[in-house]
Amino acid sequence: MSITGSAIGTDKRGIRELGGEEKLGWDEVEQGVVLSSFDGSTENAAFLKPEEREYSDFNSYTATVASWRIIKPVYNRDICIDCQNCWVWCPDTSIISRDKQMLGIDYDHCKGCGVCVEVCPTNPKSLLMFNEASDNDAELAGWPVKEKKEK
């Protein structure tokens, strides 16, 4: 079986167009799918904050998994001590943290697993899970108060 194809280059979707009668030589390989994470120059992303990056449409940052959630975490800035436990253990890169400060939750990428609530060390917790349909401000108003130790 021979592979046919011609070197037209990759199209806009990242897929190399197949077609034509030209056969590939023994030392040629048909390229697979190539997706670029960024538009324009691909500099080392380690030195760019997410808001400074030029994400391409192929980057999953531009997608959302918000529909997976049935419960959501709500963040209370007043109690938070910026320990960053939630940041290091969030599996979905959904804790927005800049300059050693926790800013909030990225609801486009959060799947509502609840790991951040479990690892929160404050009393009462500064992150709690609520029903997806509930209103953040209403839940913040009724936040639990510190439990007194039983003697």
């Binding site: 994470s37 992303a45 380690a46 030195f47 760019l48 904050k49 997410p50 980057n59 999953s60 940052y61 997608a63 959302t64 998994v65 910026d82 320990c83 960053q84 436990n85 940041w87 290091v88 979905d92 890169t93 959904s94 943290s97 300059d99 050693k100 990225d106 486009d108 990428h109 959060c110």
Partner: peptide, 15 residues
């Protein structure tokens, strides 16, 4: 952890 958290994530969400 505070210093560690100043790194810019290179693994994006919505996987």
């Amino acid at each position: 952890l505070k210093e560690f958290s100043t790194n810019n994530d290179r693994f994006e969400g919505a996987h």
